[in-house]
Design a protein around this nucleic acid. Structure first.
Lengths: 232, 232
DNA sequence: GAACACTCTCAGCAATCTTTCAGATAACAC
DNA sequence: GTGTTATCTGAAAGATTGCTGAGAGTGTTC
C-alpha cells in the first residue's frame, strides 16, 4: 500500500484513538482531529486521500465540513460515521459521489474494508484487489459474493465478515480475542463463545464443498485458515 | 537481537521483578516502574520498543496510560497484563493495532514469545523469524505448527511450549527447575515430576521421526536439546 | 401480523489436556 | 554384583476446552 493518507475526524477520544491505532496498523498514514475547524485545516494542509468524518461534531456538522473542504478544491472521498438513529434522509443526502457512510458502532475490519472499497472506486491507481482468493475460496468484495470451488454460497453478514478476516490472515493462528476485536462491533460485550458459534456455522456451510476442512482449531490458542499453498 | 527496550509496568513487586529479571535474561533492555505516572514519564524519556502494562494500576488504569502515552506520539505496541477473573471487565479492543494481552498468571516463556511476535508484526526491521528451526525440528510460530523432518506433528499446548523452550536453548542443559519456571505459569505449585512426564510425551512423539534422540537427559542436572549442527 | 432471517446465549456432550502417582527401568557408586 | 537413587512411563482422575443444537430476542419482509 503506497502511503494512503487518512484524515480521521471524531470528537470522542476513544473512537478517535481506536480508529487511528487500527488504521495505522492497517498500513495507513493517519492524522486525527477532534472537530470541524481542525478538520478543514488539516484537510487543507495534509491533502488526505480519504476522510473519516463523524457527522455529529461539536462545532459544525458533516455537511458544513464537507462543503467547506470541497469548496477549497479538495475532492477526497468522505466516509461518514453516523449514529444508528440518525434520520435516513439526512444520511442519504450525504452520500453523493464517491462518498459512503457507516453507522456506529462499527467493526474495525469493516472500516478497513470500506476504506479499501472507496479507494478502489476512486483511485484507479490502487493495487488493492476487490477479489480475495485463498485456497478453495474466493470472495468478491464488491458484490459480497463467496465462491467455494466455484459454487456460490450464501452467508449472513457476520459469517461473511468472519470469513473475510480469517482469509486475510491465512496460515496464521488468530485468537478468539483478536477475532472478536476485529470482526465484531467495538461495543460488543458478550462472550467469546460467539466466535465458536460462528466458526461452527461457517464450517457447516463451507466444509461440504471443500476437499479438506479449511478452518482449523488450534486448541488453547485460536483458529487458523489453512491455505493449500505450503506454509508461510 | 539489537537491544530492544522494554518498559515493564506493574505494581506488584514480585511480578515486576520476575518480569524484569527474565526479560533481561532473554536479552532485552528492561526498565521497570510501579505506577501509571511513572510509566508515562519513563515512556517519554526511554522511548521503549514495547510496553508491558498491567491493566490494574494503583493510580490509573492501563487504558489511560496507553492513551496518554500515545498522545505524546509514542507508538510503541502494548502487551496488556490482566488478571484472569477481571478478563470479563469487558476489555475489548486490546488486540488492536499490534497490541495484545495476556492473562495472569502467565508463563515466562510465553511472555517472551508474545513479545517477539508483537515485534515481528510491528517492526518490519527486526530480523526475528517466525520460524524456529534447530536440527531436525522446525516450528512455525505463526501457525503453531511443528515439523519433524518435514512431517507435521500434533502437540498439546504444554508440549508445544516445552519444545519451544528447549529449542530456544539448544546444546545447553536446562534444569527441571528452570524448565518449570519458564514453561509453566508462575503460580504453578506442583511437583517437578511433571517436567519428566512432558519430556516423556515429547520423546514419544518426536523420536520415532528423528535419526537420534533429540532431548538428552543429563542425570542429576536436567535436560538438553541437542542440535546436530555444532553448538549455538 | 405471520413468516423469516439473523444474532447471541446457554447447556450438555465429546474430546483433549493436565496432573499425579506408582511400578518399571536405567544409571551410578561402592 | 548390589544397593541406592534418579528417571521413565502407563494409567487414571479430574479439569478444561471446544462443538453444536435448541431457543430467546430482535428486526425485517411481504
Amino acid at each position: 500500500m503506497e502511503n494512503v493518507k487518512v484524515l480521521v475526524v471524531d470528537d470522542e477520544p476513544n473512537i478517535r484513538d481506536l480508529l487511528a491505532t487500527s488504521l495505522r496498523f492497517a498500513g495507513f498514514s493517519v492524522h486525527a482531529v477532534a472537530n470541524g475547524a481542525d478538520a478543514v485545516h488539516a484537510a487543507e494542509k495534509g491533502e488526505p486521500d480519504i476522510i473519516l468524518l463523524d457527522v455529529m461534531l461539536p462545532d459544525m456538522n458533516g455537511f458544513s465540513v464537507t462543503k467547506k473542504i470541497r469548496s477549497m478544491g479538495i475532492m477526497a472521498p468522505v466516509l461518514f460515521l453516523t449514529a444508528r438513529d440518525e434520520t435516513e434522509d439526512k444520511i442519504t443526502g450525504l452520500t453523493v459521489g464517491g462518498d459512503d457512510y457507516m453507522t456506529k458502532p462499527f467493526s474495525l475490519d469493516e472500516i478497513v474494508a470500506r476504506i479499501h472499497a472507496i479507494l478502489r472506486r476512486t483511485k484507479q491507481s490502487t493495487v488493492e484487489e476487490s477479489v480475495l482468493e485463498v485456497g478453495e475460496i474466493k470472495i468478491n468484495q464488491d458484490a459480497h459474493e463467496v465462491f467455494v470451488n466455484g459454487e456460490l454460497i450464501d452467508l449472513s453478514p457476520t459469517e461473511y465478515k468472519l470469513l473475510r478476516f480469517l482469509m486475510s490472515n491465512p496460515n496464521r493462528v488468530l485468537t478468539k480475542a483478536q477475532i472478536l476485536d476485529h470482526v465484531w462491533e467495538y461495543d460488543f460485550n458478550g462472550e467469546m463463545g460467539i466466535v465458536e458459534s460462528y466458526v461452527s456455522y461457517l464450517r457447516k456451510k463451507l466444509d461440504p464443498l471443500t476437499t479438506e476442512p479449511l478452518i482449523q482449531t488450534k486448541r488453547g490458542v485460536g483458529y487458523m485458515y489453512k491455505s493449500a499453498k505450503n506454509g508461510k
